[in-house]
Amino acid sequence: MPAGVFKETYEGDMAFIRYPIHKAALVLAVIAGLSAPLLLDTYYLNLAITALIFWVAVIGLNITVGLAGQISLAQAALMGVGAYTVAFAALKLGVNVVLALPLAGITAMIIGLVLSLPSFKLKEYYLAMASLAAQLLLEYAFSRIDPDQYTPIPPEAKRLASIDLNEPEALYYFTFIVAALMALAAGNIARSSYGRAMKAVRDNDVAASIVGVNVPLTKAIAFGIGGFYAGIAGGLYAIYSVGIGWEAFTLVNSIELLGMVLIGGPGRVVWGSLLGVLVLRTGWTLLESNLVPILAAMGFSAFASAIKYIVLGTLITVVIILEPEGLIAVLRRVKEYFRLWPYSY
């Protein structure tokens, strides 16, 4: 708890908005979020949409990994489950994508619950490997149900009542509302009894079980929620895309998602996840599209394509080593420095 901020009641300590910075961030985020379509052109609006989509997926992974301490390398595959649910519902059954979205969440949640089964017996590396195995098996399953390596999403299925979701602005607001609701829910999960049980399991599951936490149930809930978020994110991704292919949901993507959690701030479910996405995905996309041509022009064209891996990999490793709580902790320190100025030590 930052110095100088006092809680006088338990309600105050358990409130959804606990610190002034939350209030400020929330107001800024809502304003920025709502006004984005007025300020940005289509390209940047699309970047914002994908950022929101990945935010949802990373929030889910952050609940599984950061809050409950259950390592998962299968989040991208779970996104894939959601994406294919929406794609097939729209393509084969002609279901409207918006109606298929909750279904995507539920399907992925069920798979997520299945993935929680190994966690009852396994921990740490063995659990990481079980989820890695699940990731690769799901990739195999995708390649079987999607033999052309892409499944088109019919544009006529992308409607919400009379609103055409093929329009970037409409899709943006739709994604924004869904993502905001999901983030709100995630913030509340973190401070609910389930959230506290998850933290107890993360810190020491044997101790947690001794004080009466139902450990398997808590792990299952953590995986289930993580899966649900991944499914919704995958579903949104399908709505956004012309077509989806399983190459977007491979192990490398899972590693990236895990990187976003660890870089942003594990356990900092809402804002940490957003920071992770903004740095690793959106920030990088913007940087790359301008950096790579410069590098190529300088004659480093062999480097130019590979630079993404080198820079992002190094960034992930360095941040994990130097800053266990992720970049959001760095931001907090910066904020504290100025808040407590001139006595900022």
Partner: peptide, 10 residues
Amino acid sequence: IGATLGVFYA
């Protein structure tokens, strides 16, 4: 796990 995956990536 995260750090060695980062190294994998780099």
